[in-house]
Design a protein around this nucleic acid. Structure first.
Lengths: 164, 164
DNA sequence: TATTGTTATACTCTATAACTATA
DNA sequence: TATAGTTATAGAGTATAACAATA
């Protein structure tokens, strides 16, 4: 992932087609991509994940692992299928995610009494501790994101996406 | 990427800020994630890419390949480094992307006369043909996305993200 | 020295399919 | 039959590092 990390700002000479867009930004014409929400959504997602990955690195947690801890903590006893659907990931992938979290003793898989096919997920005390740290780091990340986007644009996006 | 592709309709509400957690089968609480733009951005990106992947499948083009064709077509002669930066992908990954597009004879790497380290990228006639088809399919995808989001929300998001 | 394109490696994620054990 | 969790595998994407040719 490049995107950020591009420190050089120099000779971007040789531009053809000065963009019809009012934004001073795109030296390079986006053409059809300029109408595709997916292009911009992806670029923002890359920025956010890049920053969040670095933010969580000190406690050795990935964004995916963070979201697992958050959801399990707020929904004690939910099943893996429910968790996977909430996070938008494959059940199969969640298994490996949980394996790692369980081997670090951050989460526990309890057998559901009602339906013994299901695992009732819970955070261990250590899991809660790590989550607390992660939330502090997450707040810093959020602050940087708001700085980058501007508070109003951040608010507009959050509201529009929450309702989507 | 699951998210869609899952025939069953599990009714995961993903409601905002469920203040109470009631007994039967309450919507799953997002807790801290509800303030994290990244969570929602990622979910929307998953939906969009899922749909776009299926849309482009008939012409055997991935979203990444589509964006390469669009940018190269609109910026004839640009270098691989510039293209990679525009798309937010690694130079190294772009090499393999281009290898495949070149072996299908959709793009050409010409030696830049000004700087012989650079490759001046161009679409072949076939590349332009495929791109034309892809744009038609892309328009259908966009229509579905607008239906899903609602025209106003789509507009709000596109504008906010373009300026971000 | 720095940059462009390239190769290589390791790891994560995605998309499927199939298996088991329950229901 | 259908569902929950699991295993397996192929392919895509990401993060790095290094190298040759060129500037």
């Amino acid at each position: 992932m490049t995107v950020t990390g591009n420190p050089r700002r120099k000779s971007l000479a040789l531009r053809r087609r000065p963009p019809t867009r009012r934004s001073p930004r795109p030296a390079i014409a986006l053409d059809a991509l300029d109408n595709h929400l997916g292009y911009f959504v992806r670029r923002l997602q890359i920025w956010i994940f890049q920053d969040f990955i670095r933010t969580l690195a000190p406690i050795h947690l990935s964004p995916a692992q963070f979201s697992v801890l958050v959801i399990v903590s707020a929904n004690r006893g939910l099943s893996q299928a429910e968790l996977a659907a909430t996070l938008g990931i494959e059940r199969a992938r969640l298994v490996r995610l949980l394996n790692r979290l369980q081997s670090r003793e951050l989460i526990a898989r309890l057998r559901s009494s009602a339906d013994s096919r299901r695992h009732a997920l819970e955070l261990t005390p250590q899991g809660h501790g790590v989550l607390a740290q992660a939330k502090i780091l997450g707040a810093r990340h959020r602050k940087r994101l708001i700085e980058k986007l501007g508070a109003d644009r951040h608010g507009v996006l959050l509201q529009a996406l929450r309702e989507a």
